[in-house]
Design a protein around this nucleic acid. Structure first.
Lengths: 209, 209
DNA sequence: TTGAATTTGTTAAATAATTAACAAAGATTT
DNA sequence: AAATCTTTGTTAATTATTTAACAAATTCAA
């Protein structure tokens, strides 16, 4: 079984970036790349690239490098992107609407299957062909649409409740865009993405100067 | 002068989360909180909370804890959020539109001053009262609207060029939402936020099971 | 006022992640 | 086919981050 030892979270993020470079290289007709090429393109060190890959196996040829398409395929497999995933977005506010239309998800294998909200004024409508259902229909829709992932795009005070409902409905991977810490059972994968906090990194460093 | 020693990036992110808990506590009438309270609410250890704060000074009273409003104010100051910031979003596609409407920015002190795009069909229009200007007007608008921060929400292949333009216009802090590594002069603060990669963390761990 | 109970700030220890170094493997040149 | 050049995979060293431990400061109770 793969992945027994702990792999840095940052490694996963870098694999994603490597894969984007690799497919680009492949499409440009570059069949072989070295760790140095990958490093240069993605802003890391060559040692880091090799270390990251070493967690998962041996993908290159010494003295040569890596076959770009082949390594791309391996990484996509590692990331679980050799198949498509079905995503439910909870919250049809500005952020939920926005995310539901973001084309970047589709390109990487994520299909936004539906949006859920508890506002009767929104339920029944569509956002660029994606149906908005009532949150009460969550369990049903998760089954029907074979949803595996959930995105929480509701206000902070509602986030924990929504998370509980997603878990109860059988979803095991959740992204929380609400700026609050929520807790879930340890067999659930949870990630918080705080958009404002990203800007705050900038202001922190700019303040300094 | 503050911040001579290197402070972990993760610390900045946690400060943001602490501040949100602190203002909530303050609004609920809780005047004093301990590192343990903060830790519980934000999902970290009490030692971590104290260590994070220790980078910046002494804000508590031994045997007592921290004054919630006071500590909130200190953290907001540290993060540079004691004043408002003016943000330009480049890219009036789905993501750019989405981000421009996200209320969470405003609440933390960020004003979306304008959107820039090079599509003549979009230029001149508005997205919920925010004007869309041509990218060529960047320099002018940065001066006129006193813009300090830039958000890149354009396709990957255009991201580097946009970053260069933002820097040239005098912007020193940039968030890049395009899924590609871009480089800027070292006195510019740059952060990449890859939304798809966030979902890929989930699928990586779910794959494992 | 003394002693027990809290809780911070700080130093030390333990973990984790990154970078560097280099042997091993393969390609290329002469 | 020997010698040289590349580039990987891996181990070791370094650096960074987190966690633990505890003295110092403060409150509260007796």
């Amino acid at each position: 079984m793969l992945k027994k030892i702990k792999i840095p979270d940052a490694t996963i993020g870098r694999l994603s970036l490597y894969s984007r470079y690799l497919i680009e290289a492949h499409e440009k007709g570059i069949t072989t790349v070295s760790s140095q090429h990958i490093a240069k393109a993605t802003g890391v060190t060559p040692a880091q690239v090799r270390k990251d890959l070493a967690y998962f196996g041996e993908f290159g040829t010494r003295g040569v490098g890596y076959n770009s398409k082949e390594l791309y395929n391996y990484i996509m497999k590692i990331l679980g992107l050799d198949k498509r995933w079905s995503v439910a977005i909870v919250g049809a506010g500005n952020l939920g609407k926005a995310l539901s239309q973001y084309k970047g998800f589709y390109q990487r294998g994520f299909d936004i299957a539906c949006i859920l909200d508890n506002d009767p004024k929104k339920v029944g409508k569509k956002i660029s062909n994606i149906n908005i259902y009532h949150l009460d229909a969550l369990d049903e829709k998760v089954k029907e649409l074979k949803i595996n992932l959930g995105i929480i795009a509701v206000p902070a005070q509602a986030a924990q409740e929504v998370a509980d409902k997603l878990v109860k409905a059988g979803i095991r991977g959740i992204i929380n865009f609400a700026p609050i810490n929520i807790t879930v059972d340890e067999n659930i994968i949870l990630r918080r993405v705080d958009l404002s906090a990203q800007l705050e990194y900038l202001t922190y460093y700019l303040e300094e100067a």
